[in-house]
């Protein structure tokens, strides 16, 4: 345990080929939360993300040897935070959708005693447009997960979230690395472990990098996978330790 870090939070930025936008995200973090440490997890990027973070100099960077997905990248971040004794972790996406100005609002709720705080769209602030199908699926997910998590959640697929030290300890071991595991299933894992979950309304910004997933076919696939993930999460036993 590093005592200096015990009262500090870590911002984890999972990044996969977002080198165009990443520097501005880092700059905004410097501006809004200069006192927080920032860790970029380069998820096997091929666009020199690691070098860009090093050149920027304001953040630590951990480089995965190949792309393992957001869930795995975040688990790496949680492991890092746990081993370095941070008191909380805030996930901020590298595509610029999450406003670094909201980071402290999320952390305030962690200080108030919540274990997982979601920066939620659809919660009254800002407008965020998605297709009908996707919106219906998101609502369905929200209602179901809310029931399990015993909290009223309106946006369970948001990646913008803060985790307390307790949640970091849990997620470092059991963050589901599969599709949607980092968002939907992780909430179920947290809810089952008895962690308290809440949300803070945030305004999402236009993504400035990457390509958003849209289109009818993609939406249908998304809905199908979401329902499957949710169904599996409901019948999952506690994730077994891999230790034979």
């Amino acid at each position: 345990m590093d005592q200096r870090r015990a009262d500090r939070a870590l911002v984890v930025v999972p990044a996969w080929n977002e080198s165009e936008v990443l520097p501005s995200v880092l700059a905004e973090l410097r501006q809004h939360v200069p006192h927080l440490d920032v860790l970029v997890v380069d998820d096997g990027s091929t666009d020199g993300t690691t070098e860009i973070v090093r050149a920027d100099g304001s953040a630590q960077v951990v480089t995965l040897p190949f792309n393992i997905g957001v869930g795995g990248a975040m688990r790496t971040g949680f492991l890092y935070a746990e081993r370095h004794g941070y008191r909380a972790v805030v996930q901020v996406d590298a595509d610029g959708q999450h406003d670094p100005a909201d980071v402290l609002r999320l952390l305030e709720q962690v200080d108030a005693g919540l274990d997982v705080v979601i920066g939620a769209r659809f919660a009254g602030v800002g407008d965020y447009h998605v297709g009908f199908l996707r919106r219906a699926a998101m609502r369905f997910l929200s209602v179901t997960v809310s029931r399990i998590a015993k909290a009223k959640l309106t946006d369970v697929t948001s990646g913008f979230r803060a985790s307390s030290a307790r949640a970091v300890g849990l997620f470092a071991r059991e963050y589901p690395p599969e599709y949607l595991g980092d968002t939907v299933e992780s909430l179920i894992v947290a809810g089952r472990a008895g962690l308290s979950i809440g949300q803070v309304p945030v305004q999402l910004r236009e993504r400035r990098g990457g390509t958003p997933s849209q289109g009818v076919v993609k939406s249908i696939v998304y809905v199908g996978r979401a329902v499957l993930v949710l169904g599996l999460a409901l019948i999952h036993s506690t994730r077994p330790r891999d230790e034979d």
């Binding site: 997890v41 630590q60 960077v61 951990v62 480089t63 995965l64 040897p65 190949f66 393992i68 795995g72 688990r75 790496t76 492991l79 890092y80 081993r83 690395p177 891999d242």
Partner: peptide
């Protein structure tokens, strides 16, 4: 396992 190894590897390299 390979995913967990990748995570450990990245942290160790750091």
């Amino acid at each position: 396992r390979s995913q967990r190894l990748a995570e450990e590897l990245a942290l160790l390299r750091h």
